[in-house]
């Protein structure tokens, strides 16, 4: 079970391609492979799209699918990092306040932007929600970090509990914003909290893509050190790992990834939980394999979920968070039961 099959990564990559092509092809407008080639061809020659299909492909479908893949990868990688850091397989990226903080930031914009004055609105334009979400996520995570750190070594249990507390504050903040909001604004908050890819643009793809690639290159360098945390912090230090530095780095990377992704698409739950968990069952917990595997699998799964969001009630669209939670929660419970069974077998260990 723990030895990686040599076909594992090739199969994963094929799944990614299949998911990509099907997600592009199906939707309100069907797009053929020929349309895709034609569109790319015209674009490369600097011409404008010649058919509506090419236009839909270039301006709507492609950025949406790409943003979806990047977000899926980001959430899954972040899940691996957080689970490794907290030494707990049921940890989600949003656990240390990032998502709740980001959600609060976004809700502030939805409700108060009218009163913010023209200058700010013009300056930031469509970036206003993402900027506030990012700031909120960063602020919440930083608060958790500082409170948990105290003046000594950061204790992971304390960190978790403070994360819960800060999440609660974030939620109540968002709740208050919904309470004072007018109906359409409250609806915006609700939708944002459920996540959606319907407004994907190339700029969003660019920003999240660059962040994701940068952070992933940085994070994979810490895969080995993150492995030693499996033994516990003291043991990791015996093995030569500066655990304080490791924790700071991982938290920073996670916050950057999650708040950027959350800022554009809203809160998408369970992805960061399920994907690393399933990958762990398939290839074990060596982060050198787990990180790339979860990255690809996250991209595949979220793309499929988004297809579901677009097609299930077409032409209407379901917020993607509803699908990830609805499917994710039962899967999670099944996995949890299974893991408990595995752990109680074997016996004799303490």
């Amino acid at each position: 079970m723990l030895r990686t099959n040599k076909f594992f990564f090739p199969v994963l990559i094929i799944l990614l391609l299949v998911a990509f092509l099907t997600a592009i092809a199906f939707g309100a407008v069907s797009i053929t492979v020929a349309d895709m080639f034609a569109a790319v061809n015209h674009w490369a020659q600097g011409k404008s799209p010649s058919t509506i299909y090419e236009g839909v492909f270039l301006q709507i479908r492609l950025p949406r699918v790409l943003l979806c893949m990047i977000t899926g990868a980001v959430l899954a990688v972040s899940g691996v990092l957080m689970q490794g850091l907290f030494r707990n397989p049921i940890v989600e990226p949003g656990l240390i306040g990032t998502s709740a903080g980001a959600a609060f930031g976004a809700s502030v914009v939805f409700v108060l932007s009218a009163g913010m004055g023209k200058n700010i609105q013009q300056l930031a334009g469509p970036l206003l929600v993402p900027l506030f979400a990012f700031a909120g996520g960063l602020l919440a995570t930083y608060t958790v970090y500082m409170l948990a750190k105290g003046n000594k070594r950061m204790d992971v249990t304390t960190l978790l509990l403070i994360g819960i507390a800060v999440n609660a504050v974030g939620l109540s903040g968002t709740g208050f914003m919904s309470y004072i909001a007018r109906d359409p604004q409250a609806r915006s908050i609700t939708f944002w909290n459920l996540g959606t890819f319907s407004g994907a643009t190339w700029m969003q793809v660019g920003i999240t893509g660059i962040t994701a690639i940068l952070v992933f290159i940085l994070a994979i360098r810490y895969a080995k050190q993150l492995n030693t945390l499996v033994l516990g912090e003291e043991e990791a230090r015996y093995a030569g790992v500066d655990t304080e530095k490791l924790k700071r780095k991982i938290m920073l990377y996670n916050t950057a990834m999650v708040s950027v992704a959350t800022a554009f698409v809203g809160v998408i739950s369970f992805m960061g939980l399920i994907v690393p968990h399933v990958m762990r069952l398939l290839i074990g917990s060596d982060n050198k394999k787990l990180l790339p595997a979860s990255m690809i699998a996250g991209a595949v799964l979220l793309t499929l979920a988004d297809m579901g969001a677009r097609l299930l009630l077409a032409p209407a669209e379901i917020p993607i968070g509803i699908i990830t939670s609805l499917v994710g929660a039962p899967v999670f419970i099944i996995l949890l039961k299974r893991t408990n069974m595995l752990n109680t077998k074997g016996g004799g260990r303490d």
Partner: peptide, 28 residues
Amino acid sequence: ARHRAVVSQHYHISFPLSVREMVMMGRY
């Protein structure tokens, strides 16, 4: 870490790892 090594009294291993992966950590 390259000059001293420690066997502790208790271990709590948070994730499934193979025995070989575990021993390899000694070489980290």
